[in-house]
């Protein structure tokens, strides 16, 4: 298995609302964060949920989000974060803006 992302990479969670069993919570879809760690590799739970093998295994990352990016009305300090386990097929790179 080769991991597409590494710690420090900026990523965006895909915006999608498929039916079925999905382990990417709604509140981070479409949001940008930073990969903090490659934590595991695992079969795809969306397939496992239907009794299939979910192979090939896919990397699972810790992706860190600024709370103020998730919730415009976030009440706490700017430094507060949320970290979520996200499987690779839900992530896309944030394009370099050339700057």
């Amino acid at each position: 298995m080769s991991a597409r992302f590494a710690a420090g990479d900026e990523v965006r969670v895909r915006r999608a609302s498929p039916p079925g069993h999905v382990r990417t919570p709604y509140y981070i879809r479409g949001k940008e964060g930073v990969v903090s760690r490659l934590i595991a590799e695992h079969p795809n739970p969306e397939e496992l949920a239907y009794g299939r093998d979910g192979l090939p295994v896919l990397p699972v990352y810790w992706v860190r989000f600024r709370q103020s990016d998730l919730w415009p009305d976030y009440q706490g300090p700017e430094g507060d974060t949320a970290e979520v386990d996200i499987q690779e097929h839900w992530l896309e790179p944030v394009e370099d803006d050339g700057g």
Binding site: P25, P45, R64, Q75, D80, T81, E83, D85, I86
Partner: peptide, 26 residues
């Protein structure tokens, strides 16, 4: 921070609060 307060836990503003959402097979 509001929920932590309901448990009697106050974290100073200078300390980052990081919520880990356990969404995978870990």
């Amino acid at each position: 921070r509001a929920v932590l307060k309901e448990f009697g836990t106050e974290i100073p503003d200078g300390v980052e609060v990081r919520v880990h959402d356990s969404t995978a097979e870990l």
